[in-house]
Design a protein around this nucleic acid. Structure first.
Length: 564
RNA sequence: UGGGGUGUGGCCAAGUGGUUAAGGCACCGGAUUUUGAUUCCGGCAUUCGAAGGUUCGAAUCCUUCCACCCCAGCCA
């Protein structure tokens, strides 16, 4: 399972930097903005940053990029912290960009002193006009050559709260004609009279991402600053800022070592899912799903509630790789990752989703026996358990066919199957209800066939799962399917039009073997022949059992085209 | 028609001038099986976006072309 550490272009760069002495160690960071819940896309970045540091005996920080008070909250921050820890990573330092507000402010003043930043009073619309377009250069702002003293004064007064929101901004003085629009005198600070979830009301000016991120990296001694592809153009600004401020080498931990280097990698998208925070928020607030931890969502909290293990997600991330191209991953890759984990580690139990009663007419009434069965077919260390058996049992309705199709080798009138770990039974009569639906089967059992034996050597192909009717416990089982019917719902004008109406199927009729009542609520298990399940972390209790299906078992019989 | 990127099988992805182009997922066969699961074995790109060129030899070098993605928030 644990694969050789994946070698990708970023790892090569870092290894080289270490080998040739450019850096003495690797120091990375995972820098989320606390404005939403983490999803699978973040998991890729987390595994990359923390994984690289761990493999190369370096360090990795968790840093909240919290420079936009209007969108951020402590709730999001807490959830992100928990998700990173749940995924299995420890950060070396827990950092907040907001802790650097004082330093950031000083660096801004330094830029002003050097004539490399100025206060501008263009409003947002003018700013856009002056910026030019993709094909035309921008124009200098009338304020571009404002005297340094005046800039200093204005900037201090911005901080002091003497201006309205939007009235003034601080801009870097770079090049309005740059073909790279990011370099056309980007805004460094804006005025916002907003309460910051950590800094409170201490500031009314907030630094922008480009100004904050590179300085935060440098202050923390980050050596390699990994981010996604859309920041490639911003790299020029990242480097420009660090080149133009005086940031002590002592600050960055390694004396006389180079500044952090930004390296971009491609995002990975999962088919049939959404990753955009804005759209995720809409799904939650419009009630299309039941919260951020809805098991149909690929948020980390959703996957956790669905029954995914941290290891399966880490393996998934290792499997999809790291390259410079955006990718679209098929869900089968994710499903494969969790199946691999659960196949090896989940104990097996019996449960019937859609019960059909079977009476074994030649088995005495009010008499029971117990079978000792394996908790795992291959892993003996997982031990055994006892399951009760009696005259009346439930089998899966799906495992009986009145008029069996070709290739169906389960139960049918006159046919014999084995009830797993028990006897061979043969169906003799079918009882119907008033509507003509099958309501019960009358079968006989062959006492010679206990424990998998067939004394006459006859071959019994069909093996089905079952539970004792007298001992079964009721449960609600939630079956999940993809949330969207479209492979790329985010590309649609209205992604809600692609919502899958059958993404959640609640099955209230399930009958489970009694041992499940004593199971640990954290347990993940396989309902044999059905799928992998876990108890729902919110709605499950020993009184009312609620199970989530994490993923079905592979079913090479239920191929499209073959009708059950 | 500015700048920055990317193009290897259905989806990912190794490969950085020299055997028949790794591997995973998916798919298709077949074996084993008290889960139609698992496991196992076999199949699955004469071809690397296209066209030219360099070379004894190219997915890897050069040229041109094509396609797709990102950038004109006082978001990150």
């Amino acid at each position: 399972m644990s694969k050789a550490t994946p070698n990708h272009f970023i790892r090569s760069i870092v290894s080289n930097d270490l080998a040739n002495g450019k850096h003495d160690y690797v120091y990375t960071r995972f820098p989320p903005e606390p404005n939403g819940y983490l999803h699978l896309g973040h998991a890729k970045s987390i595994c990359l940053n923390f994984g690289l540091a761990a493999d190369l005996e370096g360090r990795c920080n968790l840093r909240f990029d919290d420079t936009n008070p209007e969108k951020e909250s402590a709730e999001y921050m807490d959830s992100i912290r928990h998700s990173v820890a749940w995924l299995g990573f420890d950060w070396d330092e827990l950092c907040y960009a907001s802790d650097y507000f004082d330093e950031l402010y000083k660096f801004a003043i330094e830029l002003i002193h050097k004539g490399l930043a100025y206060v501008d009073d263009l409003d947002a619309e003018q700013m856009r006009e002056y910026r030019g377009t993709l094909t035309e250069p921008g124009k200098d702002s009338p304020n571009r050559n404002r005297p340094i003293e005046q800039n200093l004064d204005l900037f201090e007064r911005m901080r002091a709260g003497e201006f309205e929101e939007g009235e003034l901004v601080l801009r870097a003085r770079i090049d309005m004609a740059s073909p790279n629009i990011t370099m056309r005198d980007p805004i460094l600070y804006r005025i916002r009279y907003a309460h910051h979830y950590r800094a409170g009301d201490e500031w009314c000016i907030y630094p922008m991402y480009d100004f904050t991120h590179c300085i935060s990296d440098a202050l923390e001694g980050i050596t390699h600053s990994l981010c996604t592809l859309e920041f490639q153009d911003n790299r020029a600004l990242y480097d420009w800022i660090l080149e133009n401020i005086t940031i002590s080498k002592n600050h960055i931990g390694e004396k006389n070592k180079p500044m952090p280097r930004q390296i971009e990698f491609g995002r990975s998208n999962l088919e049939y899912t959404l990753a955009s925070k804005r759209k995720l928020i809409q799904l939650v607030s419009d009630g299309h799903v039941n919260g951020w931890d809805d098991p149909r969502l690929t948020t980390l909290v959703g996957l956790k509630r669905r029954g995914y293990t941290p290891a399966s997600i880490r393996n998934f991330c290792a499997e999809i790789g790291v390259t410079k191209k955006d990718s679209v991953i098929e869900i089968s890759v994710l499903e494969n990752a969790i199946r691999q984990d659960l196949e090896a580690n989940a104990k097996r139990v019996f449960g019937v989703l859609d019960p059909l009663k079977v009476t074994i007419t030649n088995y005495p009434e009010n008499e029971f026996e117990t079978f000792t069965v394996k908790n795992h077919p291959k892993d003996q260390t997982m031990g055994t358990r006892e399951i009760p058996f009696g005259r009346e049992i439930y089998i899966e309705r799906e495992d009986f066919m009145r008029d069996p199709v070709e290739d169906f080798y389960r139960l049918a009138p006159g046919r014999e199957v084995r009830i797993r770990y028990g006897y061979a039974i043969t169906c003799h009569d079918v009882i119907e209800d008033a509507n003509g639906n099958v309501s019960e089967l009358l079968c006989t059992y062959d006492p010679q066939t206990a424990k998998g034996k067939t004394p006459d050597g006859r071959k019994i192909r069909g093996i089905i799962h079952w539970v004792s009717a007298a001992h079964a416990v009721d449960a609600e089982v939630r079956l999940y399917d993809r949330l969207f019917n479209h492979p790329n719902p985010g590309a649609l004008d209205d992604f809600t039009s692609a919502l899958n109406p059958d993404s959640l199927q609640v099955c209230k009729t399930a009958k489970l073997e009694p041992s499940l009542q004593e199971a640990d609520p954290e347990d993940r298990f396989q309902l044999e022949r059905v799928g992998y399940f876990c108890f729902d972390s919110v709605d499950h209790s020993t009184e009312t059992m609620v199970l989530n299906r994490t993923v079905s078992l592979r079913d090479s019989w239920a191929k499209p085209g073959i009708k059950k």
